[in-house]
């Protein structure tokens, strides 16, 4: 098998902004001194007059972007997930969410895979924070192709959108030109023994887990849930009904993320279905290279497969 192409979703974000910038003059970018890391620098190079540096002041940046959106611009405000969703939470809530501004929050460096920078920068709480804001769309693309599609969909959607991207280069498995719709999950593999519902870089791990499970005679369905909110409840409940067992997988705390959203949907439906969550188990991360860190925190195909086996047994 040929080597799988790898690319970080943050790189795709930068590319997508530069592409969309060609098409839409009202697309502007706000940045808080991290353009090289968030990759909005790619956009800046092409459209310096539409890239507004706000300095290291993320809360201010979010409200500035909100004000700019009222004038008819479509701002993408970028920072690391920790600061975009964490530090600036209340500005996002009150100045973007409450007035339902047409602002897109491009948050890179989500999750444990930030790696060496350690726990202070490894945001595993952003889904929980952003999901709790009424009207906020929350997206977490699984590879570079989907990331580009998600950025385009976010631009076209009128209202606030939170996009989470990663620092780590991860396999690109979607075909160019994939169709993407906010609020729709994507079934990547069919199976009725167990369903794995994953988001972000855990989707590729879920596909690997399904391969491992197949070797042991277990047919796993794999669902890519790029849209954390609004959740594709229909697809989740279909999986619950047809498989009766679900494993969720996300590079996020098991508190407040995709896993809890799936649990809530299943529990309220009354469909008998067991759920196990793979995620960060209510603990802080630490420094280290991203790939072994992910394994250490159980964010791996092996752990997903193990959880699935426990359910199927």
């Amino acid at each position: 098998m040929a080597e799988v192409k790898k690319m970080a979703t943050r790189d795709a974000y930068g590319q997508a902004l530069a592409e969309l910038g060609e098409e839409h003059e009202n697309l502007v970018v706000f940045e808080a001194d991290l353009a090289a890391a968030t990759k909005t620098g790619v956009f800046r190079k092409k459209f310096p007059e539409r890239h507004f540096e706000c300095g290291i002041a993320e809360g201010n940046m979010m409200a500035v972007a909100a004000g700019a959106s009222t004038m008819g611009l479509v701002p993408f405000a970028s920072s690391f997930a920790m600061f975009a969703a964490g530090r600036a939470f209340e500005q996002v809530r009150n100045s973007i969410g409450y007035p339902h501004m047409n602002v897109k929050i491009g948050a890179t460096h989500g999750g444990i895979s930030v790696g060496e920078d350690g726990a202070s920068h490894q945001c595993c709480e952003d889904f929980a924070l952003m999901r709790s804001i009424p009207g906020m769309v929350v997206l977490c693309p699984s590879d570079a192709v989907e990331a580009r599609a998600a950025v385009r969909a976010a631009y076209e959607y009128v209202g606030p959108v939170y996009l989470r991207f990663g620092r780590l280069a991860i396999p690109v498995f979607h075909d160019e030109g994939m169709s993407f719709e906010i609020g729709k999950g994507e079934t990547l593999a069919e199976g009725d023994d167990v369903a794995i519902i994953a988001t972000g870089l855990m989707v590729y791990e879920a596909l690997q887990a399904a391969e491992q499970l197949k070797a042991g005679g277990i047919n796993a369905r794999v669902i890519n849930m790029c849209t954390i909110k609004p959740l594709d409840t229909e697809l989740v409940l279909k999986a619950a009904r047809e498989c009766g067992k679900i494993v969720t997988a996300e590079e996020h705390s098991i508190i407040g993320g995709l896993g809890e959203a799936v649990c809530a949907a299943v529990a309220e439906s009354g469909i008998p279905c067991k759920v196990k969550r793979v995620g960060v188990n209510d603990e802080f991360g630490h420094s280290g290279p991203a790939v072994p860190l992910l394994k250490q925190f159980g964010l791996s195909a092996e752990n997903i497969a193990e959880k699935a086996k426990v359910l199927v047994k």
């Binding site: 507004f52 809360g59 409200a63 500035v64 004000g67 009222t70 004038m71 008819g72 009150n94």
Partner: peptide, 18 residues
Amino acid sequence: STGSLGQGVSAAAGMALA
């Protein structure tokens, strides 16, 4: 929309910048 102190001034600056 305002109420949370310190945010309206940022939004106003964003309007002026835009």
